[in-house]
């Protein structure tokens, strides 16, 4: 019920629904960042691997 949720809102106006939405958004953002970091790590390893193999001895 909208009315009940409104009464549970904190002084800053965040209703439980909005807070839940924000937590979910933060989680997706964290996962996206983790994926990006993994991508950078993996590509670096791949490129480094090539260079290690091809380095002048």
């Amino acid at each position: 019920m909208v009315g009940e949720k409104d009464t549970q809102a904190d002084p800053n106006g965040w209703t439980p629904d909005l807070l839940k939405q924000r937590r979910r958004r933060a989680l997706v953002m964290a996962l996206a960042l983790a994926a990006l970091v993994s991508m950078f790590f993996l590509v670096t390893i791949v490129r480094l691997g090539e260079n290690v193999v091809n380095r002048a001895l």
Partner: peptide
């Protein structure tokens, strides 16, 4: 200032 902006209602799916 105390009201969350309407934009804060945007879900991950919206983005």
């Amino acid at each position: 200032a105390k009201q969350p902006r309407l934009a804060d209602a945007g879900s991950a799916a919206d983005f």
